[in-house]
Design a protein around this nucleic acid. Sequence first.
DNA 1: TCCTTTAACGACCGATCGGTCCAGATATTG
DNA 2: CAATATCTGGACCGATCGGTCGTTAAAGGA
Lengths: 178, 178
Amino acid sequence: MGVFWSRGYHATALPDLLRATKLSRGSLYAAFGDKHSLFLRALDRYIDDAVTRLNIELDPRKDPVDGLRAYLAGYVNRTSGAHGRRGCLVIATAMELAGRDADVNRRIASFFKVMEARVADALSRAKAAGKLADGVDPANAARILVCFVEGLRVISKTASSGAITHAAADALLDRFIR
Amino acid sequence: MGVFWSRGYHATALPDLLRATKLSRGSLYAAFGDKHSLFLRALDRYIDDAVTRLNIELDPRKDPVDGLRAYLAGYVNRTSGAHGRRGCLVIATAMELAGRDADVNRRIASFFKVMEARVADALSRAKAAGKLADGVDPANAARILVCFVEGLRVISKTASSGAITHAAADALLDRFIR
DNA sequence: TCCTTTAACGACCGATCGGTCCAGATATTG
DNA sequence: CAATATCTGGACCGATCGGTCGTTAAAGGA
């Protein structure tokens, strides 16, 4: 997974994968089929990790505002410094392959849908608890937050300071909560 | 430019470029050097187009709030339907190459910086005119808006409805203006 | 211990990659 | 019209791509 994450699909050659898996060509093909299947498997694992984290941060049994804070803070940390420059496998794959690969498109569309749904759910619970500012619609706000964090990952591929980003994330959430 | 835009750098092979430029291999290399140089030229043109548009929409002589509205609306339109699925050359390049190509990194970092500066400037002018909501910091809000629009381009690579996106963009700006 | 079965390995395959270069067409000039 | 300069096209190059397959080593059973 790490190799695809760091280099992207097309830029990852078989030798890279062999080095990473410590397998020989034959063994790798026996175990995973072809490069595309192996990539799909890596993508699935990356997405699983992400939704697991999402489910923890935005757990319905926890306070939704705290959850959203943790969600944003997690993204800010993950996009700072070297981690940030590594980028995000989902976004890189979306831009590189989603337009021409139905398997990939399906996975990524579903991931974004899940994330938006989780965030919207947390916002709805916050609204029910009277913690949202007046006139905030959970569905709209969810899309805004998801776009914001994904945009974060993009612009932090090329440096940019982490401090102001953290402030921006705080400022954004503060616009929504009471 | 269009070929790189649609397919990305690695996925674009020489034959694709020959078809697009209606040049032969020899002529193309005589005119542009190598594939990398040609790509840089295409990227520069794409970025020039974008900052030109930015300078029009956020022209200091025009009303800053109207400008920001136009800026957001432009991105929403450009990310809807088929246009959206084509994606954004800057983002795709950032994810694919920025980490390993200094020339590319420089260009993209500078583009994001320019965009954020233009947006921040418009927000500052809006603030000076008393049109910003209380407690809104132009620098933070600018980063939020830039991340939002770039995130938009990412998630709209995999469909997603344009209507709710438009509503989200409106809702976001409404959180900042008075 | 010897035979059978399974799994790992890397040499090898055709295709295609980005890049070079020379032959021939075209335009220009005397 | 002829000679020269310019440019175009595509055959060709080594390298590397993703993928296959025969060989060899290892493991299990009688």
